[in-house]
Amino acid sequence: MTETNGIKTTVAALSQDSSEKAIEIMQERLTALIDLQLTLKHIHWNVVGMNFIAIHEMLDPQVDAVRLMTDAVAERIATMGGQPKGTPGSVTSIRTWDDYPLDRAPSVKHLVELDKVYSGVTADHRAAIAEFGDIDPVTEDLFIGHLAELELFQWFVRAHLKNTEGDVMHRSTD
């Protein structure tokens, strides 16, 4: 076991530099997943209007799944010798995106915003996966599994936003 910058590498097959880089990327993704699970629950509490119950009930399994993802990422960080940061202060200081913009609002408005959230999270996960490919295949595999689930959840959201031609509507109505 070696130590640099407070990180004690515990995965024998990885170099110190690889461990540090993977932990840095994972911390950013952990922050995004914590933010996502809180956003999903916020929407669950504040969605109203048409299809309320469908949206309300669709979101709880997503919250639960994302919560499991956060745990897996945090444990991978710890496995690699890092210290996962999951406090509210660390989330707000690490994140680089704006807070979710809606409170109580009609379902279609929440779905349009949630589609944007999922687009950002999945794009950033894809970028992280590309970096993990050069660092650590185990971490890469973990994130590939998460990405598959996140893309499925976005598909659920987009299914509610399809027009008669099958295209996703990107503008909400009042």
Rank of each mutant, 00 (worst) to 15 (best):
A128Y: 01
L161F: 03
A65R: 10
T96Y: 06
V108N: 14
E28H: 12
H125A: 05
D64A: 13
H170F: 15
V48L: 13
E151Q: 04
E75C: 13
S19V: 06
D35R: 07
A123M: 08
T4S: 14
L38M: 11
T96F: 08
I43G: 04
N51P: 00
L152E: 13
D124W: 03
P88F: 12
R126I: 01
T10G: 11
A12Q: 14
A130Y: 03
A159E: 14
S93D: 15
D71G: 08
I23E: 05
T70F: 04
H125V: 08
D99M: 12
G133H: 01
S172W: 14
Q83H: 09
F52P: 14
I55W: 00
N5Y: 14
I94M: 06
R104F: 12
V48I: 14
H110R: 01
L59R: 00
K109C: 02
L40P: 02
T173L: 13
Q62R: 01
S90I: 09
V66F: 06
W45P: 01
T31G: 14
V66R: 01
M26W: 04
V121T: 09
T173R: 11
T39M: 06
V73D: 09
G6L: 08
A148Y: 13
A72C: 11
H160K: 00
N51C: 03
A130L: 04
A127P: 02
S15F: 13
L68Y: 08
T87D: 07
D64N: 13
W155G: 00
V63T: 02
M69T: 07
L40C: 05
T39I: 10
I144A: 10
D99P: 05
S93L: 07
F143P: 00
Q27C: 07
V63A: 03
Q62L: 05
G120M: 07
R95D: 10
A12M: 13
L114C: 03
L30S: 05
L147Q: 03
S15W: 13
K8I: 15
